[in-house]
Design a protein around this nucleic acid. Structure first.
Lengths: 339, 339
DNA sequence: CTGAAAGCGCTTACAG
DNA sequence: CTGAAAGCGCTTACAG
């Protein structure tokens, strides 16, 4: 019932090999034959069977993504749709599809990955996050299977990755606050085991040091990527006698909690304290006052990851291992000048 | 280099057919043989080649999703990650993966779908939305290809679909507001061509009629699924001499705009006007005051769509065509009693 | 420029 | 309970 290459060949009066060559735009095929075969394919509604093609070519024209486990979903969920859109859009343009699966445990995840790789289901893998001691990265490297990491790995600096310069971004934010006259600047950070937390903390410290400003450990809070995390931190921070006049917050959702906490304690942003956060998800525009936030180019991270991986697969050569997506400070109304 | 069924067969001293039967748990295979073969497979790190399997079995063990075009992304984006998580989780449990692609135009979308179906890449399709006159639905029906629609189609009532009872949900919300003493209730709706908008409007009208309450056309606004849409509507609504004491809003993001508009005009929620919205996305908890909203079970919609489609594919029989996911009114602080 | 043939890794009637 | 053989729909050296 399915129209095959043989059916087309018979009707066109050529051999299956010729039809195959027409499909793949083989150079040594006469324009006349090509045109005729193409017309017949159109008439008969021919569509190549991908399984057969994949079986012989050892290519699937598919990229794979493994969904992270629930435990890590909170942070990434807000980015997820933008990541995926970026990845799929670019992949589709290059004639690739995206295959997704999930694993309930780390063991499940590894099995899913093995199935993808060993079963020939994908030609490359996109990792949506990295944690210290990431088994995925080690496995993929040992298999020499093409992959790209969105983010940065502490252990491996020779893998293909797409990331922001989070050190620089945090440095830029800190410097911006300093330029407004702030000298007591605090930091509400995320989980310390995440590379992104480490990088942002580093940029913050660098800027303070460069401008000779004090770094006080009680101005720094490490929490989760949760609203409550920011909310809870405020009773402590705002109760300090030498409390900061500005806070850098590692994520918009956390900043939302921070904002809520500050407001409930009877303080006002930005008059009593300035706020600058990261990621620029939709919520940051919606708060009162609208939050200044660092746009990290989520769509572009996904898009570029896809593009970079495909280039690595197809051309098998890399211009560079680490691609940096530029960030932008989105200045809104949550920061005030102090004297 | 790849370990094949032949390699395993040779090492186990059996035929390839036997190995194949062990893999598929064929009943008539001796436990002894099975155990031995399984052990060898483990030892050799055998993984079945999915392309070969798919080529002969005509099954891909994959479900397909086509990403909607940018024009329609706004509304769905906020649901997207939950939908996908629900779909993937259930699919993975049944041994299926999810294949995604996108199309820039409707033509692209149709081509992508054809590629999926005719190329044997997927065994079923999940449609994330429906619009009036949906070419996808017509095509899939004409091909008799398994698919499920998340939502409801006006034109086809015999297709597999997973949806909320949006008429009932809007009815419930309206009745709740009436029970608080409201008699002048307005409605901020979404695009009228969407079935979901039509259904919610219908439930609202039914409740008003049942309780003999007035339906005023100037209390009804039709807009987009955008914050601005709600924001802009407020200058008109709040300026009415007989303005409503409660508003039902079709989406949390729109409700956020409504809330902002009301507040900027110097009014207060819920003292001056009550607000009840739909969808219960994360933002609804975060507003001041927290918004009452209808939880529509986004994850469950995705999960059930996946489950229903797989049952249709595997067992080829349906218990019912239209599955309803229950909704829940999440009562927060945006509605007040009036006398 | 084109064809005949082999083969990709699996499944499944058909025999025994 | 197990094996030999054919075949799924394609690609690609090898010939000509």
């Amino acid at each position: 019932m399915q129209v095959t290459i043989k059916d087309v060949a018979k009707k066109a009066g050529v051999s299956p090999s010729t039809v195959s060559r027409v499909i793949s735009n083989h150079p040594r095929i006469s324009p006349k034959t090509s045109a005729k075969v193409k017309q017949i394919m159109e008439e008969m509604g021919y569509h190549p069977n991908l399984a057969a093609k994949s079986l012989v070519s050892k290519k699937s024209n598919t990229l794979g993504v493994i969904l992270h486990r629930p435990a890590e979903e909170l942070f990434l969920n807000l980015f997820f749709s933008e990541f995926i859109r970026g990845i799929v859009t670019q992949a589709t343009r290059s004639g690739y599809d995206l295959l997704m699966t999930s694993g309930a445990t780390e063991k499940d995840e590894m099995e899913a990955m093995t199935r993808f790789i060993k079963g020939g289901r994908v030609d490359g893998i996109i990792l949506l996050s990295s944690r210290n001691g990431d088994g995925m990265v080690n496995y993929l490297r040992s298999q020499q299977f093409p992959f790209v990491l969105i983010g940065r790995s502490n252990e491996h600096d020779d893998i293909l990755s797409v990331d922001n310069d989070n050190v620089q971004a945090a440095y830029d934010v800190t410097k911006y606050l300093i330029s407004l006259g702030h000298t007591r600047i605090g930091f509400v950070s995320g989980p310390p085991q995440l590379v992104v937390s480490q990088d942002r903390m580093e940029g913050y410290k660098q800027a303070l040091q460069e401008f000779g400003l004090p770094l006080r450990s009680h101005w720094i809070v490490e929490g989760e990527f949760l609203q409550e995390s920011g909310y809870r931190a405020m009773s402590m921070i705002m109760g300090l006698s030498d409390r900061p006049t500005a806070l850098i917050v590692t994520d918009d959702l956390v900043a939302y909690g921070v904002l809520k906490g500050i407001t409930e304690l009877g303080f006002h942003v930005p008059d009593d304290i300035s706020l600058f956060s990261f990621n620029n998800i939709s919520i940051s525009e919606l708060t009162t006052p609208p939050l200044s936030s660092v746009d990290i180019g989520i769509y572009q991270l996904g898009y570029t990851a896809s593009q970079t991986l495909l280039r690595d697969i197809q051309e098998n050569h890399r211009e560079q291992n680490r691609i940096i997506i530029p960030h932008r400070l989105m200045i809104r109304q949550s920061c005030a000048r102090v004297d």
